[in-house]
Nucleic acid binder design. Structure first.
Lengths: 203, 203
DNA sequence: AGCTTTCGCTACGACCCGTAGCGTAACTGC
DNA sequence: GCAGTTACGCTACGGGTCGTAGCGAAAGCT
């Protein structure tokens, strides 16, 4: 969440923890109903049953608030252990697609990414609280595949970044730009492409 | 551009073509300096030397204006003929990355995509004026590769869509989310992954 | 108690939105 | 030329959001 003072003062009235949760939930609700551009902080405050000033005391603005509200959605991702690399990839991609199918993720995520192109601090916030946190999935899946002998032991550490960009980018582009569902059929074709490449893709 | 009346009236004062160009250029300029959220239509009108009302007579709002302003950037894409599929892919991906490196494309494109998640008409505008228009690159590259014998004759028409989502998505995610340059080294690794897949990627 | 911080509330100037109204400019057809 | 039609520049307006300031009350600690 937002960066609290490292030596958090033990004196004075403590911040309401329930207010934090209420605000983030209200933000997601507003994203569903209004979308990014029509979402106003005053409206979020009203939904959360909180004064507008309280909101400004905790978040610098709309961008930071939405990043935190969206980041919580991705924590539920888990890589399944289905016994093969292909099945594991298909499983996690389907989960990722399911999250991106939710309207609060769609409208919020892309908007903050757009804003982050002009705000380095915001981009760092996105990277640490969303992207880097989920790279664990790629690492875990690769380790399992190597243990099974499906993948050679990897030496290049940048391969993880490459795979993450390809997987996340493809799913995002499919669901948000092409506006087609990343259903099982698509995920199977994508996984096949990822594993064996274009040359052998046709049988 | 915006949908003009099919039977364009031959009477009355014609719309200034130079104003169109000036407005779109001013929009890109404002995107660079201000970014999406701080861009106002009044400011764009002033930059273009045009009355604000003129702007509203041609575009319904900020979204539509930015889509048109950004779409022009992608028309310069050309698929090179370098003699091999791998080299062709590398060439066009590098061009695509170069466009996405420009700030007016970065902040504008993602923002309108975010807005399009709640506006079907806007998404259609994006698809027709940007996405579908550039799928020609995938088709042309595949045809050349098949003529060279590098790819088997394809029967499944959805493969083109899949490839486009993977390529465009990966480059976008690399440059905008991971915020790392899609330089020659990355493009080579990506192309290799795309062609031979994960299994044979390590040598 | 006394201290400290947060909370809810109200009010405020500043800015942007999108539209209406008007007079003028540009172009066409009679 | 002259009427008809459309686009243009300009001004002005109500309505909404922004982000902040100021206040008294509430909630925790020593």
């Amino acid at each position: 969440m937002q960066s609290r003072t490292p030596a958090s003062r033990a004196t004075g009235r403590p911040r309401s923890a329930t207010a934090d949760a209420a605000i983030l939930a209200a933000t997601r609700e507003a994203l569903v109903e209004l979308g990014w551009s029509k979402l106003t902080l005053g409206d979020v405050a009203t939904r959360a049953g909180v004064a507008k000033t309280t909101l400004y005391r905790r978040w610098a603005g709309k961008n930071e608030l939405v990043v935190d509200a969206v980041a919580e959605l991705f924590d539920e991702l888990e890589i399944p252990n289905r016994g093969s690399l292909a099945a594991d990839i298909e499983g996690v991609v389907l989960q990722f697609a399911a999250i991106l199918a939710r309207p609060e993720a769609r409208s919020g995520l892309m908007a903050v990414i757009a804003e982050s192109t002009r705000d380095d601090a915001l981009r760092e916030r996105i990277r640490t609280s969303i992207v880097e946190r989920q790279k664990r999935l790629v690492l875990e899946g690769r380790n399992r595949a190597q243990a099974r002998g499906e993948l050679p032991p990897e030496s290049d550490p940048t391969t993880v970044d490459l795979i993450f960009d390809v997987v996340a980018g493809a799913v995002v582009h499919r669901t948000l730009v092409s506006a087609e569902p990343a259903d099982e059929q698509w995920v199977r074709a994508f996984t096949r492409l990822l594993l064996v490449g274009l040359g052998q893709a046709a049988d």
